[in-house]
C-alpha cells in the first residue's frame, strides 16, 4: 500500500492516448497508399491496400464467396473448427500426460526421452509428413495443431506437479492416503494454476500453427484465403485474411483470459 493508483483523470487520458495512437496508425496507413492510377511518393496499390478498401472488402467477403470459393464466414468457421478440435485434443492428451509424467516415475522414465526429442521440432516442420499421412483435410490440420498445443500442456502440467506444495502432499500421506489419492486429491489441485497457464500458451501456439498449415496445404480456411490472395495478386484479399487472423486471435486470447481469471478466482475461494 505505497504508491497510490493513478487518479481517474490520468487513466482516462492514457486511454484516449491509446485510442488516438490506433486511429493515427490507421490514418497514416490510409494516407500512405496512393489512390487508383496515381503514382507519386506514396505506396502503390499493388503493394498495400488502404484500410478503407480492406474494410469494404471485409464486409463484402462476409457474404461473397468470390474469388476464392467460400465466404469469409465459412473460412473462419473452418479455421476455428480445426483450431478448437486440435486444441481440445491437445488438452485432453497433454495435461493428463504431463501430470502422469510428473507423478509416476515409470511414465516419466519412458516418455521423457521421446518427448525431449520431439519437443524442439517446430510444429510447422510437421506439415509435409502430415500431408503424407492425413492428406490436406481436417485430420491433417488437427494433427499439426495438436502437435503444437500438446507440448506446452505437457510441460506446464509436469512442472505443476513437480512444484506441488509438499505440505499438502505430506499432510495427505500423514492421513493415510494411498498414492493414487495423494495424486488426485493433493497433487493435481495444487498443480492447477500452472496447468491453467498452459491453456493460453497452447491456444496461441495452436492458432499460429493453424494459419501456417492452411497457408501451406489447404483448400479452406483463413490461411487459404491469404494464399489465394497472394496467387491472384490481390493485396486487399491478403490483408482481409490477415486482419481476420489478427482479430480472431485477439478474440480467442481475450476469451481464454476471461475463462482463466474466472477459474482461478473459483479456485482461490
Amino acid at each position: 500500500m505505497r504508491t497510490a493508483p493513478p487518479p481517474g483523470r490520468n487513466r482516462m487520458r492514457l486511454r484516449l492516448l491509446s485510442v488516438g495512437s490506433l486511429l493515427a496508425f490507421v490514418l497514416l496507413w490510409q494516407l500512405c497508399v496512393a489512390p487508383e492510377g496515381v503514382s507519386d511518393w506514396r505506396i502503390p496499390r499493388i503493394m498495400l491496400s488502404p484500410p478503407s478498401e480492406v474494410a469494404a472488402l471485409f464486409v463484402d467477403k462476409l457474404t461473397n464467396p468470390k474469388p476464392d470459393g467460400e465466404t469469409l464466414v465459412v473460412h473462419a468457421w473452418v479455421s476455428m473448427q480445426e483450431a478448437f478440435l486440435g486444441y481440445l485434443l491437445a488438452l485432453l492428451v497433454g495435461i493428463p500426460l504431463g501430470l502422469a509424467m510428473g507423478w509416476f516415475r515409470t511414465v516419466r522414465g519412458l516418455l521423457r526421452p521421446i518427448f525431449e526429442m520431439i519437443r524442439p521440432i517446430p510444429p510447422v516442420a510437421w506439415i509435409p509428413l502430415t500431408v503424407f499421412w492425413f492428406g490436406i483435410g481436417l485430420g491433417g490440420k488437427v494433427f499439426i495443431i495438436w502437435m503444437s498445443g500438446v507440448v506446452p500442456c505437457v510441460i506446464n502440467a509436469y512442472i505443476g506437479v513437480r512444484m506441488a506444495n509438499p505440505t499438502y502432499i505430506n499432510m495427505s500421506r500423514t492421513y493415510g492416503a494411498t498414492d493414487w489419492q495423494v495424486f488426485t486429491r493433493a497433487c493435481i489441485p495444487s498443480a492447477l494454476p500452472m496447468v491453467f497457464g498452459a491453456l493460453q500458451i497452447a491456444l496461441v501456439y495452436c492458432w499460429i500453427t493453424l494459419v501456417a498449415a492452411e497457408l501451406l496445404a489447404s483448400d479452406k480456411g483463413i490461411g487459404y484465403l491469404i494464399t489465394t490472395g497472394r496467387f491472384l495478386g490481390r493485396t486487399d484479399l491478403v490483408l482481409v485474411g490477415m486482419v481476420s487472423v489478427g482479430l480472431t486471435g485477439a478474440l480467442i486470447s481475450l476469451i481464454i483470459d476471461r475463462i482463466e481469471a474466472r477459474l482461478l478466482a473459483g479456485l482461490r475461494r
Partner: peptide, 8 residues
C-alpha cells in the same frame, strides 16, 4: 500484432 502468426 501479437495474435497474428508471423507466417501470415
Amino acid at each position: 500484432l501479437k495474435p497474428m502468426p508471423p507466417l501470415a
